[in-house]
Amino acid sequence: MPHAVVTGAAGGIGHAVAERFARAGYTLTVSDLDGPALRRIAADVDALAVPADLTEAAAPHDLIARAWEDGGAVDVLVNAAGLYPSQDMLDVTAEKWDRLFALNLRAPVLATAAYGQRVSAAGATGAVVNISSGSALRSRPGGGPYATTKAALEMATRAAALEFGALGIRVNAVSPGFVPVASEANPVSPVYARAISANPLGRSGTPEDIAHTVHWLSTPEASWITGEVVRVDGGSSTGALHLPRIDGRSGHEEGNPA
């Protein structure tokens, strides 16, 4: 039975990812800072729960070690833990910046390194999927520090894929568009949700949309894909649908459908 590790499993996307792997018959190890919520989710998907603060330097390594030793060899690592605070670049402090980078960038990089070492020592193969964001391509007011972490995570994904290929480990990322989830840790205002949810497909994403892609990237069907960032965003990264036409027309005139 294959084994997957999912961080951030108490969050909306992380929870959906854990459920998707559970339905596929995986042994699961799930981790999150929110211990009570994590244990409820672990009970739902019959997983080993490992509460952890991944901003602590040793925590990513310890998580992989615990998963490997208690659940067996790990086939898939999904780095879904993350924060997306509203923070203006003008108001950046060293403490806020370092904590954000510790969770959004350093933790997945260290977890991937620890995972790679285990897989290599076992002579096995594996897959890593990082959760990025459309913010890696374009920032927004109050989103600069977060966007910077995700841009760096996408480069770290490519760098790891380049070096881990010879070890039989594929490393990819999934970049969600706007996916509304209930979260006390990452609140989103209704105004922001309405403004960002416009896309060519006309709806917001769901955690399940992201989970399906994460799972697919970890399967043999994606065995020749590594170093890629798959944008699951309803087409929002294709352009700015909310902007007016250059010639001033609405795009909805008779004979000229949008």
Rank of each mutant, 00 (worst) to 15 (best):
A18M: 06
G235Y: 02
G142P: 14
V229L: 02
A73N: 05
T148N: 06
G11S: 01
G82H: 08
A182Y: 05
D70E: 15
T125M: 13
G11I: 00
G71Y: 11
L153E: 00
P60V: 11
S223W: 15
A42V: 02
H15M: 03
V74S: 05
D53R: 06
G72I: 03
R194C: 05
S183I: 01
N104P: 12
A111S: 10
G25D: 09
L201I: 04
G14Y: 06
P190Y: 14
P85A: 08
L162W: 15
T55A: 15
S120W: 14
H252S: 08
D34S: 08
A24I: 00
V188M: 09
V230C: 02
R40E: 14
T157F: 09
I169P: 00
T55I: 06
S135C: 03
A147P: 10
A166T: 15
V109C: 04
P85K: 03
T226V: 11
H3A: 01
L100H: 08
R39G: 06
L54F: 07
S86C: 07
V171I: 11
T226G: 12
G14F: 03
G116V: 11
A47D: 07
A151W: 03
D88R: 13
T226N: 14
A160E: 10
R99T: 14
H212N: 13
D233Y: 02
A222Y: 08
P108D: 00
A258Q: 13
S135T: 01
A136I: 00
A111V: 01
G255C: 10
E69W: 12
A22M: 01
L63Y: 13
R140V: 06
W97N: 02
R66P: 00
S250Y: 09
A127P: 03
L28Q: 13
V230M: 09
I64H: 05
S197C: 13
L63I: 12
V6K: 13
